[in-house]
Design a protein around this nucleic acid. Structure first.
Lengths: 115, 115
DNA sequence: CAATCTTATCCGCTTATGCGGATCTATGTC
DNA sequence: GACATAGATCCGCATAAGCGGATAAGATTG
């Protein structure tokens, strides 16, 4: 559950979405992104680090240049439907706990209104 | 682009993911959610408002009770693949601007390294 | 209308996060 | 080793967002 929230958080920033869109065109280095996005180096680096920590992108060094690309497993993720993703969410430990709790609660409630 | 970021932001909180999971089981009222999640009323209300503003859920009043349910269009969204969602992201005005910029940049760059 | 119940919103506080300049680290060349 | 370049990280700042208690608002009943 926390993992899902983390992934969504990584996607919740416009700059990061722009970066992901550009990386979808192919591998790019920091300076490429800086030029296209017209953003300072530190800003780009920070966002790339965030996306890498969220396992959405990976990097490789070539001399002084760092190249970034979309994580390979992302395409696999692309083939999943929201339903599939959502069902994964529903299988999370916390979600299952909540469902059990919901059942107990609704059984107790039994047509009455809020306890 | 901003809209995508907003939606992802709405999904980036664990409590809100729990709420969505529960609402997937069917329509519930605030007091139901309070009881199951063991959270104060104000917290639940705040998150529900956030999800409603993100158009992920909708509400109806029945007397003093407010019932919430997953937005109807969400199931439709569930049928989309990540690829489909991603391609929508790529069609955003900002993304297209970035791609044009990327082309120009790469043409200028032409095999050389960062400018 | 007052009282009661449910819920939305306000409020003050704490924590998280975005920003960009400065500085540190890694790599390459002479 | 000195110097240059690219990029990661630090740092201070501003803003956003999460929390829960208090309060305001909406609905119902006597």
């Amino acid at each position: 559950m926390k993992k899902f929230a983390m992934t969504f958080k990584a996607l919740s920033d416009e700059t990061r979405l722009r970066i992901l869109s550009l990386l979808n065109q192919g591998e790019l280095c920091v300076c490429d992104l800086m030029a296209v996005l017209q953003l300072p180096q530190s800003t780009v680096s920070r966002h790339l680090a965030y996306l890498r920590n969220a396992n959405l992108i990976s990097d490789r060094r070539e001399g002084v240049w760092m190249y970034y690309r979309l994580e390979e497993k992302l395409p696999t993720l692309e083939e999943q439907s929201w339903e599939s993703l959502f069902s994964q969410l529903l299988k999370q430990e916390q979600a299952e706990k909540d469902f059990v709790e919901l059942k107990h609660y609704l059984a107790e409630k039994k047509g009455t209104r809020c306890v």
